[in-house]
Design a protein around this nucleic acid. Structure first.
Length: 711
DNA sequence: TTGAACGTGCTGTAGACAGCATGTC
DNA sequence: CTACAGCACGTTCAA
């Protein structure tokens, strides 16, 4: 074990209020990386980059820095805390609330806000205090309110290594470049996992690097070689038994949702025998709650496993189910969670044992896990304060053993800039710069480009900028006159919708050449690249969706959309089929089919359905806005809201009533209540005749309906 | 006749950010 | 466009 730093706080020069804050939290000593950060100027307005493992106390550094700046500025500083995931935003919001409360006790009046995509309004202003947000939300907000950038005093960049993420990195990097170009006075606190090129990152950010691989709990890796993959099961069972006898919990990582589920089911037999009666009792109530949160076979299996102290975790679960599993594991109630990489990054969830079962899988062109994913999974081992050691078991067959050794012993991979190769995201960024008024000349755009992280670039940024701008001009989103750039009316709409120009161009073509009726719009949405289709199957029907569409039975229009999509994006048959199946599923969704039947018909996980309809609602809204800007008549009124609520036009109004979701709205409509007024005029006994409405709910509905109608 | 044990060939393979309460022929 | 695990199905052989 590492020796704790004795009375670290008193030896270091800490500002008085910071010391008081730490005392209040019961923190008497700082971890080594934290000490180093203080020594390197955490409280001297320095830009800092801290690259250190999870749980090494990076959030506390952000808390201290924010607190210090807030106190020094008499509560006037505006801190923006950027995170890569919504769940993380909530977590950080909770933690940072302590800072704000502390300031308020000192008579200052800073506030704390959280703003992510699930919060409806854009960020309109940065009030003194802390705003927790995602990179995308801040980026999107800057489009409607560019002056926001001048309001940022301290920018905290949590998990900056996400800059190297293939899908999301470009936005993060672009945002950083944007803020630093137009707000020179901003101070930076960047927090990163351990990466191969922390100095280089720090250099980019003009920050002093604090690099450490110190962990509060020591890690030990064990590579377990098995003769064949089929023997992994027995090995996992053995490890789990050992872990539980030692009083620990285990995380098992693998690379398939279905196998996460079956593995959890299989392990539950092993685990249930090792539970106490009290635990079993608590788990039974937990399992009941699981069943309430979802439907279908998966939910049943989850409930079965949970009852025995095991759960699985992947993106097909609803957000509530996931949160439930995470909380129960954190409380120690669940002993084992079998997970896909959902759990590798993001929310804080350590375990004594981490078992990496799928080592050396192939997904696309990549070997999984990648080195950085591996480090993240492994890094979950060891609960600070509970375990004195975190154990990582890598199960591998002999052909992957060498690679496993390499992963364990080598450093993390370097973060590579993705911005110049991420076509659609780069175009969205550049369009935003011009449309929001940040840049008028090509030279201005280049100035921002120079502030990006150029490491490991093998194409010239200038070329990428020029060719992207040219595309935006060709597509009619920008106009260029002697180096002077302006956004067209449609260009502004694209920028504010936050769609990628690539998707917007396609959607405009669909609307112009085919139409804007619902049967055109839904496939247009699911065929555009901004819609990322989760796995879906259309096996249950006689004809495959593609044949159905190609055969022209549903509509000629959809067929035309399909051809446009192939022309624009070159989808293969398989991709087309998947996307068209989604169009059909969403069509069922907006006509009010029960969740259960949609999930069964398309063999979907609930989480995937809800994510898809949210994505579609976003795109539909953007599309209607594009239509308006382009002077196209929009013939699918309210589609976006219908996608959000999953109801037909007639029942939409009913969902405004508190306590009425899509299911009840449909039932009420069928029972003859067609408007909020109808509900307001009903009586409790009448309402309770509708299935699913008890006396209590009936009263709530009546009250809400009367409030809405003002009666 | 049943069913365990093994062999063969086909199929599937993770994740999750963004718009805003509006129009219009 | 890669290669692995899982699974369904088929075959063999023992009881």
């Amino acid at each position: 074990m590492y020796a704790p730093v004795r009375r670290g706080c008193s030896k270091l020069k800490l500002p008085e209020h910071v010391r008081e804050y730490l005392d209040r939290k019961g923190i008497w000593e700082l971890f080594p990386p934290q000490r180093e950060a203080v020594e390197k100027g955490l409280f001297d307005d320095e830009n800092l980059l801290i690259a250190a493992p999870t749980a090494s106390g990076k959030t506390l550094l952000a808390e201290m820095r924010a607190l210090h700046e807030l106190i020094e500025s008499h509560g006037e500083t505006r801190v923006v805390y950027v995170v890569p995931f919504r769940a993380l935003a909530r977590e950080k919001y909770e933690e940072l609330t302590n800072v704000i409360e502390f300031c308020r006790e000192k008579g200052l009046e800073p506030t704390i806000e959280i703003s992510t995509g699930d919060v409806r309004r854009p960020i309109r202003e940065l009030r003194p205090g802390i705003t927790v947000t995602t990179a995308e939300k801040l980026d999107a907000s800057l489009r409607s309110r560019p002056s926001l950038v001048e309001e940022v005093d301290l920018l905290v960049l949590d998990e900056v290594h996400i800059v190297g993420d293939r899908n999301r990195g470009a936005t993060y990097e672009a945002l950083i470049a944007l803020v630093r170009t137009f707000r020179e006075k901003v101070s930076l606190l960047a927090l990163s996992a351990t990466v191969g090129n922390a100095e280089e990152l720090a250099d980019w950010l003009d920050a002093t690097p604090v690099i450490s691989d110190w962990r509060p709990v020591k890690l030990e890796h064990r590579i377990v070689e098995v003769p064949s993959a089929s023997e992994k099961d027995a090995k996992v069972r053995k490890l789990i038994r050992k872990c539980l006898r030692e009083g620990g919990q285990a995380l098992v990582f693998l690379y398939s949702r279905r196998r996460a589920m079956t593995e959890a089911k299989n392990l539950s037999r092993t685990v249930s025998g090792l539970l106490s009666e009290d635990e079993k009792k608590e788990l039974r109530t937990l399992a009941e709650r699981v069943s309430e949160l979802g439907e279908g076979e998966e939910t049943e299996i989850l409930a079965y496993a949970v009852m025995r102290g095991v759960a699985f975790h992947h993106a097909g679960l609803t957000a509530e189910q996931r949160a439930l599993v995470e909380d129960a594991f954190r409380e120690g109630l669940l002993k084992v969670v079998v997970s896909t990489p959902t759990l590798a990054a993001g929310v804080n969830l350590p375990a004594r044992y981490v078992i990496i079962k799928d080592f050396g899988m192939r997904l696309g062109n990549e070997i999984k896990p990648t080195k950085n994913e591996f480090k993240q999974m492994a890094g979950r081992a060891g609960r600070p304060g509970y375990d004195d050691m975190g154990l990582v078991f890598v199960l591998t067959t002999s052909n992957w053993k060498e690679l496993a050794e390499e992963y364990v012993h080598s450093e993390a991979d370097p973060v590579q800039s993705r911005i110049w190769v991420s076509g659609p995201q780069l175009r969205r960024f550049l369009l935003g710069l011009v449309a929001a008024g940040f840049c008028r000349q090509i030279a201005d755009v280049m100035r921002v480009a120079l502030n990006t992280f150029m490491s490991s670039v093998n194409i010239r940024p200038e070329d990428a900028v020029l060719s992207s701008l040219k595309m935006l001009v060709d597509w009619g989103f920008l106009e260029e006159l002697e180096g002077e750039l302006t956004a067209t009316k449609v260009g502004h709409a694209v920028s504010q919708s936050y769609l990628t120009p690539d998707s917007a161009k396609f959607l405009l073509r669909c609307m112009e050449e085919v139409g804007t009726e619902e049967n055109v719009v839904l496939p247009s949405i699911t065929l555009c690249p901004d819609f990322q289709p989760a796995p879906i199957s259309s096996k249950s029907r006689e004809l495959s969706t593609l044949d159905a569409f190609m055969g022209g039975s549903p509509s000629i229009e959809a067929d035309e959309v399909l051809e446009l999509a192939v022309e624009e994006f070159g989808y293969d048959d398989w991709e087309l089929e998947r996307r068209l199946a989604w169009a059909e599923a969403l069509s069922d969704w907006v006509s009010g089919s029960p969740d259960r039947s949609i999930l069964r018909k398309y063999d979907l996980y609930p989480g995937d359905l809800y994510r898809a309809k949210d994505d579609a609602a976003w795109i539909a809204w953007g599309m209607s806005r594009l239509a308006r800007a382009a002077g196209i008549t929009w013939r699918s009124p309210l589609l976006s809201r219908r996608l959000e609520y999953g109801v037909p036009k007639e029942a939409l109004e009913l969902t405004e009533v508190e306590g009425v979701g899509r299911t009840l709205a449909m039932r009420l409509y069928r029972a003859g209540y067609h408007s909020v007024r109808d509900l307001a005029e009903a009586t409790v006994p009448e309402l309770t005749r509708v299935r699913g409405i008890g006396e209590q709910l009936a009263r709530k509905i009546l009250e809400s309906a009367r409030r809405l109608t003002g009666t």
